[in-house]
Amino acid sequence: MKKRKQRVNSFMVNGLLLFLCLVWTVPTFGLLMTSFRDRDVVSKTGWWTVFTRPDQAELTLDNYEQVLSGKTITLVDSKGNQQTVKGDNLTRAFLNSLTVSIPAVVIPILIASFAAYGFAWMDFPGRKVFFILVVALLVVPLQISLIPLLRDYGRLELTGTFLAIWLAHTGFGLPLSVYLMYNYISQLPRSIIESAIIDGCSHFGVFWKLILPLSVPAIASLAIFQFLWVWNDLLVALVFIGSKPGVEVLTQRLLYLIGSRGQDWHLLCAGAFISMALPLMVFISLQRYFVRGLLAGSVKG
């Protein structure tokens, strides 16, 4: 009797779970399939026809080639008209995203780690007040800073430079980073630091040789957060990079694709997938740290 009940239970549990997983996965899967389909069929039939009518599937890598190379492609559509379609150069945007992301991850974490160590283990006037201020800044939505910062950037001729956006991401990411790093660093055993100081290490040495190596788990979590945040960001890029073509990042480029080629599904899908590839890879391979980070505190939004 008992056994039977449990089996029904587990059947229901697994069934419901499977259903939810399907709902969550199918949209992405659809995008993936579409990105491999020929442009002619994409806008005519649903992607699921790849499975329902496999004979007409016509899978291709052309979409990716077009999106990445940016070369102009001449096509003949079904009515026999010639059409030239300019591809999109997402490679450049991809590199730009990389250029934005890596320093925009490393810089705030480094600065936050220094600050967290200072707040946790050094004594100076105003320590408490400053720390409370930093944490209080968690409430400030970055929207509130956009206008004043844009003015500063205009005056300093920083708009559209990498430095501008690194600093912006650093500024917006710092409260959370300091908060999380402080949580971690302040919980390291005091005696380790004192031991190093007795051994003759300066605070600077303690920081580089002890705190940073010991904080790797926390740094990893934070780095994934910050990376996903920066890589996926649209607003900060729109505001501080604007439409400077050489510096545009992936999300901007993708937005442009949506706007100008809303109907070119084949390009859009390939482009979207390119923009997701790196974060998905980082995410899946470092998921453990990400979860740990999530559990450690709140999340920036």
Partner: peptide
């Protein structure tokens, strides 16, 4: 309560790695 805890959690969790813009493309298509 499921045997498939790990895989189902990853599948549900995955969209967190996608940008809002990317998600926009996915869902425009839906």
């Amino acid at each position: 309560r499921s045997k498939f805890e790990k895989i189902s959690k990853i599948l549900i969790f995955l969209p967190m790695a996608i940008s809002f813009v990317g998600a926009g493309v996915i869902w425009r298509f839906v």
